[in-house]
Design a protein around this nucleic acid. Structure first.
Length: 630
RNA sequence: GGCGCUGUAGCUCAGUUGGUUAGAGCGUCGCCCUGUCACGGCGAAGGUCGUGGGUUCGAGCCCCAUCAGCGUCGCCA
């Protein structure tokens, strides 16, 4: 019982205060000298979600916020809210505190005591768990007044997000955020329980790390005692968890905070939370089984949902069927390559693409024949935004198909297309012609768009999937140089080492992604544990031995001292919680997120600091930074 | 950084082809009300229409610039 562990007036911990205690060992007062809560007189405090008809006739004390007041002049109802629910309290004109109750306003904080009684027949509120009863107040203490809040706390009506973030303490009082953070708590609790049961150790890794610039941009921390030198905040504990395996811990997990100084997206934050897992002496299969079991456990324990199969797709297969490496498997609508149908047509654009090594990818739009020309134009714009050159549509209504390309399409062309994507009368077929990779990527994103429009993406359906057999290297789009598709500690697939000289682009990685509803929850890999192989990979990536030593010397030495085979995975907790809560952004499942432009609008961070503090860490601001002053 | 959209009352929004005093719902304030639960009734306050410039007899509306926000792409090994 919380009551037995802290001073009820000031909430200090029982262990550190020296207050007087009554015969039952409860604190009556402590060093705060507050005596508003008179232990002897007051009935037991109950939560605002606790009382039921069976409590009729008992005396109760409630503490909470004014959710809403209904003043009938001669009778005042107040809904008192705390974290557990809402209870209606009633002020009768005969009560001594009636006058005070007339001045209660939303978000005032109060403590009341009174008798629990059944509501008169016919006035019960079925929408409230406590709706059968009410508390007839005979003692009211206003613990604090509230200003009029800038938005309604007692509803989840939409409010400008920056306003919500500025007054986050009010926003967090709202039902939606209370529930979301509870779900998040249960998810994290379930994860810790699961991995604990399986013998994993949660080990913390440092926040002040070494910068190893190559992926995302680091957040840097200057040092007062080392002029010109910087720590970096972790982008992930990748190397440290590998070193923990080398250190012999065998099974590690951590709920780890990670920081990346990159531009924001709906499902991204400058700092985010990761479930980090690593195992020694494991196969890829063991990692997949472990993580899959963890997800099943979390969904069962935190959400009460039994999730279905985790289909496995190779990277190649995922691209071919869904256009993306993170397919949304809540719906079908698989893509089809239809280039051969257009190889001999008079439609010049398509024929050129088909004969020039590009791809023409078809997507079914269920019911799409009902769309207007204008709708298709809008869809085409969307496709362009996704990087496509354009989109050709064919509407399969009853008679002749409608399409901007109708005059180039023979009946057998249309029939072949229809069969390829299993379209029916009433559907539309969308076609994307481009360089192979682009055509599939655009079609894949449009597939999600169509799924959204056709309401095939229910937020209470959870379709997990594994994507495996990623290519080891990919061509960097900006430089044109092969680069690791993931991180350079990933092990190539068994047997693919021999390709490293002959055909490096053919190498596959022992890398796997866990996907849920079209979101990448996270990725993992079997790592390289042989130092010579690790050096070989760095060499292939064009890093000189000196460069390897400077960046990863500590890690290479660790590999030299008997590194066990190991592998693992990291999952985005924020995304998991977001999807579990049916939210659109991870900001809805983070108590104090940064906004879209990485600012904390409640604290107003980041902020300028006095020059003296800048100088203390041996830094000065460039003129361009000073120009930002306003 | 590119593109698109949006800035009107505390909140969420409407505002016609450029035309008199800029509106609604919720909230706030006051009065009334003994069974409400989005209580109800009557009344009131509250707006540099993001900012600056321009066109016009006249601008919330049109034009230019700028700031802010949102979305999206780039980026995120």
């Amino acid at each position: 019982m919380e009551r037995t562990r802290c001073c009820r007036a000031c909430r200090t911990s029982w262990a550190i205060s020296t207050g007087r205690r009554n015969v039952r060992g409860w604190r009556v007062s402590c060093c705060c000298n507050t005596s508003t809560l008179r232990e002897s007189k007051m009935p037991a405090r109950v939560s605002c979600g606790a009382l039921r008809a069976t409590d009729e006739g008992t005396a109760a004390q409630l503490c909470g916020w004014v959710n809403r007041r209904r003043d009938h002049g001669g009778l005042i109802f107040v809904d008192v809210r705390d974290r557990d629910g809402i209870t209606q309290i009633v002020f009768d004109p005969s009560a001594a505190c009636f006058a005070a109750a007339e001045h209660l306003r939303n978000e005032d904080v109060l403590r009341v005591a009174g008798a629990v009684r059944r509501r008169p027949a016919g006035t019960e509120n079925e929408r409230l768990p406590t709706g059968e009863i009410e508390v007839a107040v005979d003692e009211l203490e206003i613990l604090n007044r509230s200003q009029v809040p800038p938005f309604a706390v007692n509803s989840d009506d939409p409010v400008d997000e920056n306003l919500r973030l500025e007054y986050r303490y009010l926003d967090l009082r709202r039902a939606r955020m209370q529930e979301n953070l509870r779900v998040r708590h249960r998810i994290i609790k379930a994860l810790r329980d699961f991995f604990d049961e399986r013998g994993f150790l949660e080990i913390e890794t440092p926040m002040l790390m070494k910068s190893t610039p190559e992926g995302a941009r680091d957040y840097l921390v200057p040092s007062r005692i080392y002029p010109g030198a910087f720590y970096a905040l972790p982008q992930s504990p990748q190397l440290l968890k590998q070193i923990l395996m080398i250190a012999g811990f065998g099974r590690y997990m951590q709920i780890a905070r990670c920081m990346r100084d990159e531009d924001q997206r709906a499902d991204r934050q400058p700092e985010f939370t990761q479930l980090d897992v690593e195992l020694s002496f494991c196969t890829q299969e063991e990692v997949l089984e472990t993580m899959e079991s963890a997800m099943r456990y979390v969904w069962r324990r935190a959400l009460g949902i039994e999730v279905g199969d985790f289909p496995r797709l190779t990277h190649r297969e995922s691209l071919a069927r869904y256009g993306l490496d993170k397919p949304d498997l809540r719906f079908g609508l698989e893509l089809a390559e239809v280039g051969s149908i257009f190889a001999e047509t008079d439609f010049g654009v398509f024929r050129a693409v088909a004969q020039g090594g590009g791809a023409i990818v078809a997507l079914r739009y269920p019911g799409g024949a009902a769309l207007s020309r204008r709708d298709f134009d809008a869809l085409t714009e969307t496709a362009k935004q996704y990087g496509g050159k354009g989109m050709v549509w064919i509407a399969l209504s009853g008679g002749a198909p409608k399409s901007p390309a109708a005059k180039f399409l023979t009946e057998s062309n249309v029939e072949a297309l229809r069969t390829a994507v299993a379209a029916e009368i009433g559907d539309a077929i969308l076609l994307f012609a481009d360089e192979r990779a682009i055509a599939y990527a655009v079609a894949g994103k449009m597939r999600n768009e169509v799924g959204e429009r056709c309401k095939l993406r229910a937020t209470d359906v959870f379709a997990f999937a594994w994507v495996t057999d990623f290519p080891y290297l990919e061509i960097d789009e900006t430089t044109g140089v092969p680069a690791p598709a993931h991180h350079p500690f990933t092990s190539p697939a068994p047997g693919d080492w021999e390709l490293i000289d002959r055909a490096p682009m053919e190498m596959r990685a022992q890398h796997y992604d866990l996907v849920l509803n079209g979101y990448e929850l996270g990725s993992g890999s079997i790592r390289i544990h042989k130092p010579d192989q690790q050096r070989r990979i760095f060499e292939m990536l064009g890093m000189s031995p000196a460069e390897v030593e400077e960046r990863f010397g500590f890690f290479m030495r660790a590999l030299d001292y008997g590194a066990p085979p190991h592998g693992g995975m990291a999952l985005g907790i924020d995304r998991i919680a977001m999807l579990a809560c049916g939210e659109e952004t991870i900001r809805e499942v983070i108590a104090f997120p940064k906004n879209q432009v990485a600012r904390d609008v409640m604290m107003n961070a980041p902020s300028r600091i006095p020059d003296q503090l800048v100088h203390e860490v041996h830094l000065g601001l460039l003129p361009s930074a000073r120009a930002h002053d306003s």
